[in-house]
Design a protein around this nucleic acid. Sequence first.
DNA 1: TGATATGTTATCTT
DNA 2: CAAGATAACATATC
Length: 280
Amino acid sequence: MPELPEVEAIKVQLEKFLLNKKIVSIDVINRKVFQGDEKKLIGGLVKKVRRFGKVTSIDLSNGYSILTHVKLTGQYIYRGPELKSEILSKKVIGGIPGVHTHLIIKFDKGILYYNDVRRFGWIRVIKTSQVENEPFIKKLGPEPFKNLTFNIFEEILLKTKRNIKTLLMDQSKLSGVGNIYANDALWLAKIDPRRQADSLSSLEALSLFKAIEMVLKSGLKYGGASELAFVTPDGGEGQYQNYSLVYGHEGEICKSCKINKIEKFFLGGRGTYICPVCQK
DNA sequence: TGATATGTTATCTT
DNA sequence: CAAGATAACATATC
C-alpha cells in the first residue's frame, strides 16, 4: 500500500511537523522493528526529511539519521501544538499509544508515535553520511520524476522476459511503484499485465512510462491511498482509493470502454485487475 | 472459519 | 550460474 505517493505524504508531513524540533527522549517498545542505538538520536534537531523510493530518512543536526520503511501497516502519527484539530483515523488500530505502538519519540514540542500491526516495517539509526550507502537504498532502481528517463525505462523493459507488472513493482529495477499504481498504470496504458516486459513496442513503453507518471501524480494529488492501513502523520487518510482506475474495482464496469467488467486474478501472488477487452 | 490484503526477501526451481 | 517463481512474514477483517 504505501507506495511513492503515500510515503511522500508521510515525508511532507513529517518535515512540516518536525523541522527544527529537538529529540528529548525515545522509548523503544519493540526491538524487533528498531535497529541501532536510540541514544545517538537524543538532542538532535530535525534538519531535513528525505524520501528514497518507499523509504524515508529523517536527518538530524548531530550527524545521525532515522531511516524507516513502513512496509504494509506501519504508521507514523504526530501529536503536537500545531495540529488545529486532532483527528485520528480508525485505521490506527489500538490508538496511540496502544498495543501496536512500538516506538515513541518525544520532541521539545510534540510526540511522534510509530504503530505497526504486522511489524513488517523497520526503523534504523545510521549516520547521515551513510544513508545513501545503506544496502537497501543502494540497490533501489531509478525513480519516476527523479532519475527515471524514458530511455532508461525502455532499457529496463528490454532486459527481461518477466511479466511487465511484476517488473514495475521490482524496487531494484525502478523504485516507488507498488501494486495499486502498477495496476492503474497498466490499465491507463491499455497493456495486459501478463505481457513479457521485453515484448512491449517502443510506443507501448512510452505510453506506459507516461501512465506511470500520471497515476503517481494523481496519487500525490489525493494524498495517497488508504485502502488498508495507510494514514498520514496528522492522523488523517489519503483519498486516492476513491479515484483509483482499476485497483479494487473487480466486477465494476471499465471506466474506459464502459462495457466490460473489471476482472481480478493473481499475478506473481498479487491481486491484479484488468479490463479484459481494453488491455492488450 | 479460513481466505484475503500487501512490500520485501529468503529460498526453491528452471 | 542466473533469472524467475514462490513462500514466508503477521494479523485484523470480512
